[in-house]
Amino acid sequence: MFYRSLFPRDVFAELDRIQRGLQQGGGDLSPSIRGSARGGYPAMNVGSTARSVEIYAFAPGIDPTTLDVQLEKGVLTIAGERASVLPPKDAPATVHIDERFSGRFRRVVTLPDDVDPNAVEALYTDGVVHVSVQRKAASQPRRIHVQ
């Protein structure tokens, strides 16, 4: 969310966020066709096993009924909306720090070709959307018996 850098509130917080960005970068420098979504909301981790692809979207504080998870042609979309907790402008309250995301979000990930669109499970626990997509049976590793 680099747009926030236009109005820095606190130089230390700003430097820290840049540092954090570098730390979390992890050296993954190959850009995707959908741009560098790093730093977008929700943050995502993707992992794979021989049988499935596991996607974790770190989206805390969302009403699960507003979450929209779709899988179409090997592209997974996670969308939803997060309400702001900040008081309205005319309220007698002061906002000292405003770092948390609010508003509508949408993130898209391309999945490997061999996933089975009919075997998807999504679970929302502790503020993380965990989507588990099975790989097609044909592409799962099989031990071949040697005669």
Partner: peptide, 21 residues
């Protein structure tokens, strides 16, 4: 990330800690 809001009776802090049981 946190939000911190102060009103006349106190301070409310919201922090995002996804994945923490």
């Amino acid at each position: 990330p946190v939000d911190v809001v102060e009103d006349s009776a106190g301070i409310t802090l919201y922090a995002d800690l996804p994945g923490v049981p």
